[in-house]
């Protein structure tokens, strides 16, 4: 009964629809990035490139905005600049991501550990308020950041992003890490304390190594959030990191979808690979972060 024909049809039919839903848009993007603009526009649609080209990727590395034009429209300097911004943006995205992860794991890890192990006056309330701050939409509190950063001369700097990203990633990190520390048994620490280790030593020598899976999960989620962030980077920096630079390419005249597709692949492939490689950590983190 369990392997009835109906069940099998439903499961494999569902599987087929699932594959189409997830892969079709991505396949189209990947396909476009290896085609010329004229081939991608051909009717009937070409499901494989007849004459695969790497020109779109070369254009991104060399900062060429119109790899397929015949050279008469060389006057569009601004769009060339826009493409040339992509490579530096990738470096800056990585830098911002690592900085946010580092500050979140240290500051958020310390707080998560404190909330898990040491009760202090108002600790429950403080923790609840920290969780509640997750509800405040980032988009709604952007103006004070803009005004303060403008006064401080920090607009258009990576530092502005590192600071502001902490607003939404730090509560997430504290939450994930507190949940994780709760699941780490206290006995080892207590034994170490009886042996005379100080609280700080206990934390650094015993807890941090045990908590590695939790730190990895939190670090990955925070990094992906920083890498993907669009709105603050758009508003506070006019596009220093990858997502707004790529989105900005859409506004250029003379810019073809095939080159944009290559840029899109650059933005999408790293987080997808990270997610696939660390799937188990990430799903655990997501489940802990949202259910507890």
């Amino acid at each position: 009964m369990r392997t009835s024909l109906l069940r099998r049809t439903l499961v494999y039919g569902g599987f087929a629809l699932f594959l189409v839903w997830i892969l079709f848009p991505l396949y189209f993007t990947a396909l476009s990035s290896f085609m010329t603009p004229s081939e991608i526009g051909s009717v009937p649609f070409h499901w494989l490139p007849e004459d695969p080209t790497l020109a779109n990727y070369v254009a991104i590395f060399t900062g060429d905005s119109a790899p397929f034009s015949s050279g008469q429209d060389g006057g569009i300097v601004s769009s060339t600049d826009a493409v040339a911004r992509l490579m530096p943006a990738i470096g800056r995205s990585l830098l911002v991501g690592f900085a946010v992860v580092a500050s979140n794991l240290i500051i958020g890890g310390a707080a998560g550990y404190a909330f898990s192990r040491y009760e202090f006056r108002g600790s429950t309330l403080a923790y609840l308020l920290l969780l509640a701050s997750r509800v405040v939409p980032a988009i709604a509190i952007v103006l004070p950041f803009f005004i303060v950063f403008r006064q401080a001369g920090l607009l258009n700097t990576s530092l502005a992003l590192v600071i502001s990203y902490n607003a939404f990633t730090l509560p997430l990190a504290v939450w994930l890490l507190k949940t994780y520390f709760d699941s780490v048994p206290k006995e080892l620490e207590e034994a170490a304390k009886i042996d005379g280790a100080s609280r700080l030593r206990c934390l650094l020598i015993i807890v941090v190594p045990i908590a590695r899976p939790g730190l990895i999960a939190a670090g990955l989620l925070v990094f992906l959030e920083a890498w993907s962030e669009f709105f603050y980077s758009l508003v506070l920096t006019n596009g220093l990191t990858v997502p707004p630079v790529v989105a900005g390419l859409q506004n250029l005249q003379q810019f073809s979808w095939t080159t944009l597709a290559a840029a899109t692949m650059f933005t999408v492939v790293p987080p997808v690979l990270i997610a696939l490689a660390f799937q188990r950590y990430i799903v655990t983190g997501l489940a802990a972060g949202s259910v507890k």
Partner: peptide, 22 residues
């Protein structure tokens, strides 16, 4: 099960770009 995580890993703004051209 592996593929399920793929769209989640795509930044929101990229989902917009991918679908716009799709």
């Amino acid at each position: 099960r592996s593929l399920l995580i793929v769209p989640w890993a795509c930044p929101w703004v990229m989902c917009g770009i991918i679908w716009k051209w799709f």
